[in-house]
Design a protein around this nucleic acid. Structure first.
Lengths: 144, 144
DNA sequence: CACTAATTCTACAAATTTAATAGACTAAAT
DNA sequence: ATTTAGTCTATTAAATTTGTAGAATTAGTG
């Protein structure tokens, strides 16, 4: 399940992918209907994770730390929501066993969920925000 | 994200797929480390959804309502956790628009999440509990 | 037939966690 | 001095995961 947090994060990153130079958090929030303070926290996490650069003071704001085609949806979601896997025992980046399962290796559920995880990762780790922006661009965002 | 509820539901259904005749909720709970009352609620939902038949009173218990190869992981998860889609606007069985989005059709996030949903559904709707049971059977569940 | 034991079913409640937001203040840059 | 990000704290709301108490149903027994 994608949280609002991750959804907002993706929106913000796509917004930044479509802007040149430094962008104010206030603009991102307004144009995308994101609660300002919530967005602040999200941008902070993305900055700490190295996906954004920030600049304080007048003329400050946020900017992508890397080209938009080198940042994937998968990265953003992992930072904001944690592992992609539907269940922790099926995560490849953050494995954790279930407390209620005897033999992890023999777990049929984990087996299927590994497949699901891989299918999700295949899509999300291949989709850059540049791609997402291009796909969604047919029509412009209108602040309503 | 797969909740404990859905995980327990899957476990219970796999258990039933491997048993002949009527099975007590108490047995399912014990063998799979599932809190008894939580399991009761889960089995009730699965019964109401038509995946199980139940029988009350002495000699009562639960049984699959259909052959194990005609019940999929996707069905079980939808009943217990709701739509598979990572986000409601990308659900094909239970679509709901985001309140914060202007034009749903032009949403790049929805676009990707539809792909993710389809990839998940492809796996989960094709995997029966008969299959899951067969895969997990190499080693037996040991009540620990 | 009445009684008892076993079992599902129902309704509620509570505890815990997580998600989502808001407010006030701090630090840095111009 | 002003603007802006960053930090900290707190609150609200919701969902999840359990527990408690008992009602309804059935099978068996005397």
């Amino acid at each position: 399940m994608l949280s609002n947090k991750a959804k907002y994060g993706l929106k913000a990153m796509i917004h930044l992918a479509g802007s040149d130079g430094i962008v104010l958090a206030a603009n991102i929030a307004q144009d995308n209907n994101i609660p300002r303070k919530f967005l602040d926290a999200i941008l902070l996490e993305l900055t700490k994770a190295g996906l954004l650069t920030s600049k304080k003071g007048k003329g400050g704001g946020y900017q992508l730390a890397r080209p938009a085609d080198a940042i994937t949806a998968g990265q953003i979601i992992r930072i904001l929501d944690g592992p992609l896997a539907p269940i922790a025992c099926a995560s490849r980046t953050a494995y954790r066993p279930c407390t209620d399962c005897g033999d992890v290796e023999a777990c049929a559920i984990r087996d299927v969920m590994l497949d699901v995880r891989d299918a999700m990762a295949l899509i999300l780790d291949r989709t850059s925000i540049a791609t997402m922006r291009a796909r969604g661009r047919h029509r412009q965002y209108l602040p309503q």
